[in-house]
């Protein structure tokens, strides 16, 4: 472990990977419960177009991808509200357009270097200090926003109609959630790549929901699964020379299987409750 931490690139990867994974996992609980889990997958495809645009225009790909992802997330929301489309249909339309944009730009440019490959499959070990700072700041912004709007987000996730009749600004919060999702997807892309980013959002949350008995517990379990998966995945990847992105996701997949099994051992409480009340 000591030799692992003596490498600056591993220090950066562990720090960024840990914080970004936790951010994805916390937001993921809300998305999974709102039946919006696939928005991560859709926005990840859109970020491919954003990254390609950035590379094509010689701009910072991560920033361009961030702008495109936020714009697309709001577009998905608008399509659902105005065009009366189901969420998955709206996600399908926007993500396909994003992917199409990326393919066209890649084709126009002839080819990009290994950069694009890194964005597709993730390359956390190659994260540079500036990207670490950007990731840390964005992750903290997302986490602080969730903390500040926690009560509203929980109510909105549980029962949007009653939340509205309690004075919760449902539309504004839906937009805020869409923006947070876009930012988080772009962050996650750096850790595990476009193709696996939705796993960072969905897997720890799905694992937590197997056993959580309260919303706070779900958030804590999801964050723990994600944090441990990120650290364990990076350590395993380092010592066995495996790809970091795949290893992190595989570890969180193992957590899901373990908690899925744990759920079946949970004692049914209904009969006991009926006797008590």
């Amino acid at each position: 472990m000591e030799s692992l931490l003596s490498y600056a690139f591993m220090q950066r990867a562990l720090l960024a990977g840990f914080l970004i994974s936790i951010t994805c996992a916390i937001l993921g609980v809300f998305l999974v419960l709102r039946r919006d889990a696939m928005i991560g997958h859709g926005l990840a495809h859109v970020t491919f177009g954003g990254v390609a645009l950035g590379l094509f225009l010689y701009l910072t790909p991560l920033l361009v991808a961030l702008g495109v992802a936020v714009f697309s997330a709001l577009g998905i929301l608008k399509l659902k509200e105005r065009a009366g489309l189901y969420g998955d249909t709206a996600i399908g339309i926007i993500s396909s357009l994003g992917m199409a944009l990326g393919i066209i730009l890649v084709s126009l440019a002839g080819s990009f270097n290994v950069d694009l490959f890194g964005y597709l499959f993730g390359n956390i070990l190659a994260i540079d200090p500036e990207e670490v700072w950007m990731a840390l700041i964005l992750a903290l912004v997302v986490l602080i926003t969730i903390v500040l709007f926690y009560q509203e987000f929980v109510f909105l996730t549980f029962d949007p109609e009653s939340a509205r009749t309690s004075g919760v600004q449902v539309r504004r919060l839906d937009k805020l959630m869409a923006i947070l999702t876009a930012v988080t997807v772009v962050l996650g892309m750096k850790v595990v790549g476009i193709l696996l980013v939705s796993a960072l959002l969905v897997m720890p949350a799905a694992a937590a929901l197997q056993v959580a008995r309260s919303f706070k517990e779900a958030l804590m379990i999801s964050a723990s699964v994600a944090g441990i998966s990120a650290i364990a995945g990076l350590v395993i990847a380092f010592y066995f020379d495996w790809p970091a992105s795949g290893t992190i996701v595989a570890v969180s997949g193992l957590f899901f299987l373990v908690l899925f099994q744990a759920r079946s051992y949970r004692k049914p409480a209904q009969e006991e409750l009926n006797e008590r009340v």
Partner: peptide, 28 residues
Amino acid sequence: ATLLDPYFPASVREVVAMGLISLKRFPR
């Protein structure tokens, strides 16, 4: 409300606390 997702991870306390949101000022 009668069609509640039985696996939603909310405790009874958390559900009742949602009702207080209209009384509270940001960050509630």
